[in-house]
Amino acid sequence: MTELIGISPQLLFAQVLVGLINGAFYAVLSLGLAVIFGLLNIINFSHGAMYMVGAFCSWLGMQYLGINYWAALILAPVVVGVIGLLIERTLLRRIQHEDHLYSLLLTFGLALMLEGIFVELFGVSGQRYPVPDLLNGGINLGFMFLPIYRAWVVAAAVVVCFTVWYLIERTKLGAYLRAGTENQALVQAFGINVPMMRNLTYGFGVGLAAFAGVLAAPIYSVAPHMGSSIIIVVFAVVVIGGMGSVLGAIITGLGLGVIEGLTRVFYAEISNTVIFIVMAIVLLLRPAGLFGRQS
């Protein structure tokens, strides 16, 4: 293939792929944040820590219990989901009628504590998690080399995102969730156990973060600070997509990952800040975000 404005197609496609991978993580993480924010009105600052705990769950499971990748993909979200249920029931519920800032500070504090505990136990350096045998190797597409595991991550993330989107937008359970997002008191006055719904939603949201953590384990190293480095970008994604918008979180997550990748090709100097530049522009033009309901 010929060069396109001085850039080799190999480099371009490779960066688009890296962008898609990052975008897949942004999408799954911001989806969980959006669902939690929608119903619980909580800006869940411990989301990154839950992603990290998910990755550690899969690593610890393999290291000490012989649990393989595929089992971890199910078990880690369940374990972290249960932790989420307990956090909501014992801590967040007590402050649900207080100002936003309280839950923000509480979840931020939890994130710091979780990170601290894992640093104490495992040190700051990363632990390696091998790619499962089934997904080892790659395919030569002619114009680029595609590692199978990376293709799997993008596919798995997209499938999970759209399954969640379908559940929320097209099922009865999702209708409760959407209605609860608008007017919780009334949903409860219809006889639906809203406190339990909030509890399960929080557990589900952080379970999604853990799922992303397991997907990430073979790509990035499993390290206590892996969550805090990604979560700031994910918050920017949520703001750009529109707080609480499920579809917005998915599309913006994937899209911004690609934009970030392309920036690395064309103007690498701003690749770490491009998402925040986009955020500033979007906030100026559409303060409620691209998919948020403008008021």
Binding site: A185, A189, P195
Partner: peptide
């Protein structure tokens, strides 16, 4: 009682 139990 909480609202959802009253409704029921």
């Amino acid at each position: 009682m909480s609202p959802h139990r009253i409704a029921r």
